[in-house]
Every structure is written in structure tokens, then in C-alpha cells.
């Protein structure tokens, strides 16, 4: 995966051909759960994660017909992770949580309590660290792929991962 593959702009013939051959609906059904997993890890509430995921796919759809997406899978993952960690988004999410205070807690979740604690701690990390950890452990990207997705160097991603894990170890009282 190269840096350009997740961006927008002119595409080469082979990308265009691949892109045009697949209906958006197929792309959505194939990628939805993977993208939702990233959003769920980075946001507190299930409904927010689902909303964020749909927003990312809606953004992709707006570009789909113009064939402006070189790598739609990477693009939609980047967008959802960026949206999830943005301070603006966090403020909105917090606001909605307060408005819906009576419904605090995700009663529909079946995630193990320990795992909930882990993702809660991840969401408290600095944004880039949280993003790197989720893209590595949940989305399964390599450090180089994350570097390309986030537009930073591979060493920078390693630094974010190391620092994030060190903070998590301390927060979760896990022996390093």
C-alpha cells in the first residue's frame, strides 16, 4: 500500500477498472463490519460507532461514482479512525452521551468486561496513539501500512504504538 492509495484524486487505469467493476453495495457489505470494529474501539457508544461508520461510507459513496478513490478500503478506514479521534467529534459524542444520560452504558454490548476496560483505556490515549493501536490490533494493518494511512513515518508509528502500549500497561496495571 502506498501513501497515495488511500487518497483522493486521479486514479490510474487499473485502479479505475477495479473500482468500476464493483458496485458500492458490495463494497459496503464486505467492509462494513471491519470498519465498524475500528469505530467501536475508538468510540464509547455502539450507536456512535454505527453512526460514524455510516458517515464514512456516505463520504465514500459521494466519491464512488467519480472514481476518485484509489483504495476505497483504506480510505474508509482512515476516515472513520480520523473522525473517531477528532476532538470535535469527541465533544459531539460526549454531548450526546450527556443528553442521553438515562441510557448510559451500552446494554446491547456483549464484549467481555475486561475488553471494555481495555478499549476505554485506549480511548483515553492521545489521539494518534489510540489510532495507531486500533489500526494495528483491530484492523490488522502493519506499521508501514499505518504510516501510509496516517501520512507519517514508520518510525513515528512505532513510537505511537510503543508509547500507547506503555501507557496502557500502566493504566491497566499489566506487567510489561
Amino acid at each position: 500500500m502506498s501513501v497515495n492509495e488511500c487518497g483522493t484524486g486521479p486514479v490510474n487505469d487499473s485502479d479505475t477498472a477495479t473500482h468500476r467493476q464493483e458496485p458500492f453495495e458490495n463494497f459496503f457489505r464486505r467492509e462494513y463490519r471491519s470498519v465498524l470494529a475500528i469505530a467501536t474501539a475508538l468510540t464509547r457508544k455502539r450507536t456512535d460507532a454505527e453512526e460514524l461508520t455510516m458517515e464514512a461510507f456516505e463520504s465514500a459513496l459521494r466519491l464512488w461514482d467519480r472514481n476518485d478513490l484509489r483504495n476505497p478500503s483504506a480510505w474508509v478506514r482512515t476516515v472513520v479512525s480520523n473522525k473517531a479521534v477528532s476532538r470535535y467529534r469527541r465533544a459531539v459524542t460526549e454531548a450526546k452521551a450527556l443528553v442521553q444520560i438515562a441510557a448510559s452504558g451500552d446494554k446491547q454490548s456483549t464484549i467481555d468486561t475486561d475488553s471494555i476496560e481495555v478499549w476505554t483505556a485506549v480511548r483515553r490515549l492521545p489521539a494518534r496513539q489510540a489510532q495507531a493501536i486500533v489500526l494495528f490490533h483491530v484492523a490488522g494493518y502493519s506499521r508501514l501500512e499505518i504510516a501510509n494511512l496516517l501520512g507519517v513515518g514508520e518510525e513515528t508509528v512505532k513510537t505511537h504504538l510503543d508509547r500507547g502500549r506503555a501507557r496502557l500497561a500502566k493504566a491497566l496495571e499489566v506487567p510489561e
Binding site: F28, R33, M54, L61, V118, H137, V138, L168
Partner: peptide, 28 residues
């Protein structure tokens, strides 16, 4: 650090399992 990685991997597996149980909505 390995222990933390294991914790994260387990949490990620839980998360994927949870997400896999969710229905896929209609595309936008």
C-alpha cells in the same frame, strides 16, 4: 511489553466477535 500486546489482541478478538454478531444495515 508482550503482556500488553496479548491483552490488546484478546480485546480485539472480543471486539471483532461482538461486531460480527451485528447485522449489516442497508448501505447508504
Amino acid at each position: 511489553m508482550k503482556r500488553t500486546v496479548e491483552v490488546l489482541e484478546q480485546a480485539a478478538a472480543d471486539l471483532r466477535s461482538e461486531v460480527d454478531r451485528r447485522a449489516i444495515p442497508s448501505p447508504p
